[in-house]
């Protein structure tokens, strides 16, 4: 344990080596994913796979950690912004910056020990969860919304989908109705309101869950979680749906055919 991590030595004598050897995927490097990249680099995660096809625009600067005015002018890819930030904190980190949708590089995703999902939309979340389940990768999803109304309201969530545990559907996070509604709205344009502080709360919590999975500092299991964020009252609590779903035997990903590559060839 060198001096750099002395303030987190309570995570265990081997935690520095362990964190260095773990590969985390971050899918979406916007307001949430950029926070996660920064926090993970600080804590000592040594390997990253970053997925985001987008470049930095001026509207991203209100929440994308590490992005600069110059990045918005030059339209720097978000994965390059995140890579630069990670390497600035830890020059020895191994980073795979992939400026593409994660579906175009399944093999890189499958090489990861844990995936952070920072995507918009239920169908994209469901697709990512299926891919993670196929490769037995824990998925930690975060997301937030600003709901229009009188007054405005901020909410969000951190949800953990652990292989062989209740999935997003079991936990009530994704319902068929949500997928149907989203399908009907497909193609509608518009950037949803997003703010840096609530993204920060959710991302920090997600990284805490990640570290608790790797090097638990207490015996409370985050193995399955559905935390709801009330951005108006500034609280983060177990969502009521979690109590119902946590004891589900997952029927959506239980069979042997739900694992691995259906078209495997040596």
């Amino acid at each position: 344990m060198n001096g750099r991590f002395s303030r987190q030595s309570f995570l265990g004598a081997n935690s520095e080596f362990l964190f260095r050897s773990v590969r985390a995927a971050i899918v979406g490097l916007g307001g949430g994913g950029s926070h996660i990249a920064q926090h993970s680099a600080h804590v000592g995660i040594g390997r990253f796979a970053l997925f985001d096809p987008d470049t930095t625009e001026f509207p991203n600067l209100n929440r994308t950690v590490g992005a600069t005015f110059e990045d918005a002018i030059s339209k720097t890819p978000k994965v390059i912004v995140a890579e630069r930030m990670i390497k600035g904190i830890n020059p020895y980190a191994e980073v795979w910056p992939m400026q593409l949708e994660w579906q175009k590089d399944f093999e890189s995703l499958r090489a990861c020990d844990v995936v952070f999902g920072c995507l918009d939309g239920f169908s994209r979340r469901a697709q990512l969860e299926e891919s993670c389940r196929r490769a037995m990768i824990p998925l930690i999803d975060i997301g937030m919304d600003v709901h229009k109304g009188e007054p405005y309201s901020i909410s969000g969530q951190v949800v953990v989908s652990m292989p062989e545990k209740p999935c997003f559907k079991c936990l009530g996070f994704i319902r068929d109705k949500d997928l149907d509604d989203e399908g009907r709205r497909y193609g509608e344009a518009g950037g949803n309101p997003q703010v840096v502080w609530s993204n920060g709360v959710l991302a920090s919590t997600a990284v805490g869950i990640f570290i608790q999975l790797l090097a638990p500092w207490c015996p409370i299991s985050p193995g399955s979680a559905f935390l709801g964020y009330d951005g108006d009252r500034f609280t983060l609590e177990h969502d009521a749906r979690f109590a119902v779903g946590v004891n589900h035997n997952c029927e959506h990903f239980g069979s042997i055919g739900d694992l691995g590559d259906p078209f495997w060839k040596p």
């Binding site: 795979w96 093999e107 890189s108 499958r110 490769a135 042997i256 691995g260 590559d261």
Partner: peptide
């Protein structure tokens, strides 16, 4: 252990199921 198989960027994954 009955397993399924997948390919990753770093090699192959053997995924225990039953």
């Amino acid at each position: 252990i009955g397993c399924k198989v997948s390919r990753s960027r770093e090699g192959i994954l053997i995924l225990g199921h039953t």
